[in-house]
Design a protein around this nucleic acid. Sequence first.
DNA 1: ATAAATTGTCGAAACGTTTCGACACTAATA
DNA 2: TATTAGTGTCGAAACGTTTCGACAATTTAT
Lengths: 334, 334
Amino acid sequence: MNTTIRDVAHTAGVAVSTVSLVLNRKGPVSRETERKVLDAIEKLHYHPQRSARGLVTRRSGNLGFILSIDHFSKAEPFYTKIFLGTEFESRSHDLYVLLTTVDQQFSERNIPRFLLEKNVDGILLAGTVPLKLIDYIKDRHLPCVFIDYLPPSGSSSAILIDNAEGIRQAVLHLLEKGHRDLAFVGGDMQHPGMRERCEAFRGVLTEHGLVADTTNIFCEALLSGAREGYDAAQRILNDKLKVTAFVAANDAIASGILRACRDHKRRIPGDIAITGFDDVETAITARPTLTTLHVPKEEMGALAVRLLADIINGTASKGTKIVVPVSLICREST
Amino acid sequence: MNTTIRDVAHTAGVAVSTVSLVLNRKGPVSRETERKVLDAIEKLHYHPQRSARGLVTRRSGNLGFILSIDHFSKAEPFYTKIFLGTEFESRSHDLYVLLTTVDQQFSERNIPRFLLEKNVDGILLAGTVPLKLIDYIKDRHLPCVFIDYLPPSGSSSAILIDNAEGIRQAVLHLLEKGHRDLAFVGGDMQHPGMRERCEAFRGVLTEHGLVADTTNIFCEALLSGAREGYDAAQRILNDKLKVTAFVAANDAIASGILRACRDHKRRIPGDIAITGFDDVETAITARPTLTTLHVPKEEMGALAVRLLADIINGTASKGTKIVVPVSLICREST
DNA sequence: ATAAATTGTCGAAACGTTTCGACACTAATA
DNA sequence: TATTAGTGTCGAAACGTTTCGACAATTTAT
């Protein structure tokens, strides 16, 4: 009923192994037998079966995408976009992407199923993931590419955002507009990207002879959402600190700041200017719309797949890091 | 190196087949040997390998998601959301979703790879897909669930939108606001959903003793995008037809109409009111924001996976149809 | 002319599971 | 007591590929 390689061999009048050789373009096959095999394949509509092939080659044709659970939700368009980027790209590499989420603490019975079942040829890891999970993957020598995260251990392949340059652009933009009293509001410092944004802010300001210390850098929050932005801005506005421009570490935080400013009856951008980072929907649905740094999210996903595929095929060396540029999008909030 | 079921059998002191029985909770196994096997599994960190298992069971643990190519793009948030819904849900069914796109005309060398490789246990089909492809799938007796589309042949399982009710709500809303001169702008009539929306408009209007004919129903467009909405609205406004409210078949069309109205210096909603359908980002990023019908897109994806999983397990009968409700979201455009 | 290398083909073994029929037991039935 | 009906366990065969070593038939080098 199910047409197999044996059927092809039979109708072509050759051995099974010969059909396999033709199929995989391996080993020498005469023009003539190749023709016969190809004809038989055509005639029988034959196509090798993935699981049988995978059993012996140990290749599944799948990539795994691992994401922290709190990053894959309806409210988190950032990593979702990256994921969609991987989906787009993977189709042109003849790969499928299996998505899974993990929670922050790693446990034995928590290991993504596709890893246990040896059902992926490589892994994409987006955002912060448990270090133990990373170790687990490295132990198994699975090729992997990190996205928007670089584990402390160093030498991993990764697709990264040019955070420093982004913050620099935002700050320069604000300086140009005449602002001199800038404040930075960050979030979850577990994430190296957050730290980079924060450090960049400090760097650019001191470069321009401006103060950058605990009076205008707020990074104690444990998360990086609108709530944290709101709380920080509240404190700042209540304390009547002199601030005319906020540089937020991402759009969610920026939208929280926006709300706090509105609650304090400050006009935007008249009294206070705000910049975000990431350019997610929030930036454009906010009122006023947010000036922010555009991050090419789909493109990052695509780059990650391309790099991972190259590493799997041995045409790229692991340890490659790609930094994608960001660009300032000026909207109403500045 | 690779720990297999044989290793487990060996350290547990039983036969390979016994381990398999324990693993799959099949056949009778004594309490005692079960313990031994479980211990060995624990000790060796054993987990069955997908491809080996799949080879004999003919189960892959994957679902295929098929989407027309023009529906999976950055500009098409509708089906993308549905896809994300399936991703969410599938994880709790221990299934992975493999996504592929197809173009409108079916050809032999165009068949999704996961079908050829027998790498999926069931199929989700979203939007219009080539009939030949549907036949191909049916021929192979693969369980499948349609999303936002019902093929002419009938008896398929599907997750559908309550289009008629949606249009009814939009029209009633406009009538309540005092509008009497309504026009409907549709798009690609290949899609049964589009036809339903159009028919519903005609129905509700005649029910209320209002005219509904070619003077106020515009459905000749071949596509369903902003461009089509713009063109239709242009013609209507140029011809100075008496229209105070537009009912668009989706948000993209509505946004096109919006632009045409702006070009004609009509105030919205002062001079002209507009409603959309689907509640995608366009609806909220448009200026003014669009009154539209919310469609629970992620939920549709989730429902589809649940239904498909049930059909695969034999706990739901194929042919089941689920109609999801829509709800009117009033924003600035009415 | 002979030895060595190359080319094309093949059969058989592997890959890691599940499933099927056989078999020895024990418990229930006649 | 003799049969029958379960239980629990096992070995072997399958599932559909790829890969490896063998081997004949050529071609090339000595």
